[in-house]
Nucleic acid binder design. Sequence first.
DNA 1: TTTATATTTCGCAAATATACGAAATGAATC
DNA 2: GATTCATTTCGTATATTTGCGAAATATAAA
Lengths: 117, 117
Amino acid sequence: MSDKLEFTQEVIELARISKALSHPVRVYILLKLSKMDSCCYSGDLVEELPVGRSTLSQHLKELKYAGLIQGEIKPPYIKYCINRKNWERAKKLFASFLNNDLGVSTLLQKTESLIHS
Amino acid sequence: MSDKLEFTQEVIELARISKALSHPVRVYILLKLSKMDSCCYSGDLVEELPVGRSTLSQHLKELKYAGLIQGEIKPPYIKYCINRKNWERAKKLFASFLNNDLGVSTLLQKTESLIHS
DNA sequence: TTTATATTTCGCAAATATACGAAATGAATC
DNA sequence: GATTCATTTCGTATATTTGCGAAATATAAA
C-alpha cells in the first residue's frame, strides 16, 4: 500500500499542543498556573519574565487559543487560570504518547474514512 | 522582587522538545519509531506521509538535531531509530511537567546563579 | 566506468513566529 | 467628562519554518 494517508485527530492534536508548549515563556506560564492551582495576573508575570508586556500578551493569547488557559476579567485586571478540562485532556494524550499506548491505527487514516464518516 | 529572571534548563529543554514535536509529520515519525522498537527507512515513510522526499528529510534532520532519533547508514538506505537514551529523558521531563512534579524553584533562576555557577 | 538507487543539500518562495513601542480599549475613580 | 490603570491590538521589523523541485552525494550493481 503506497497511498498517502492523512493524520488522525490524535496526531494533529499532539502537534498542536506541542506547538503551544514550544516556547520557554509558554512552558513557564503553564507550569506556574497548573502548579499554583489558582490564577495569575498578566502584570505579575511580566515582572518575572524576560519579555515585554505586549509580547507576553501574545503568548497568553496563543495559550488561550490552544485552549490551555482562560482569562477572567476582574477589572482592572485579567485573571488567568489553567483550563482544567483541556489540560487534563492534554495530559492524557501526552501520557498515551509517551507510554506508547496509541495504537498504530490511531496514527493515520485513509482519506476515504474521513470523507465518509 | 521584580528582577527579571532566566529560565532553567528544564524549562528550556521542555520547550525545545515540544518544538521538535510541533508538527504532525514529526509526531507521527516518533510515534512510529518508538512503537516499532525497530528502525525505518526514509523511503518507507515517504510512501505513507503527505510530504515530499526533501521535506521529509528536513523533518528527520530536525528530529536528529533534537537528539530524539538517530540514523544508521546501511547503503543504499539509512535506517532511522529512536535515540533511546534521549527519548527516556524526554519522557521523564514531560511526565514531571504533566504531573506537576517540577518545583517552582526549577522554573526560573537568577542571572547571578548562572554566571557564578 | 557507467548506471541505478536512496537520500540529502541547495535555492527559492510563502507563511508563520517573535519581539518591541505606540496607540487603543475598557472599566473604575476623581 | 477627564483621568488612571492593566491589558490588548496595531504596525513594523526580523528570524524561523515549511514546502517543493533540481542538483548533488554516496554507494552498489552492471
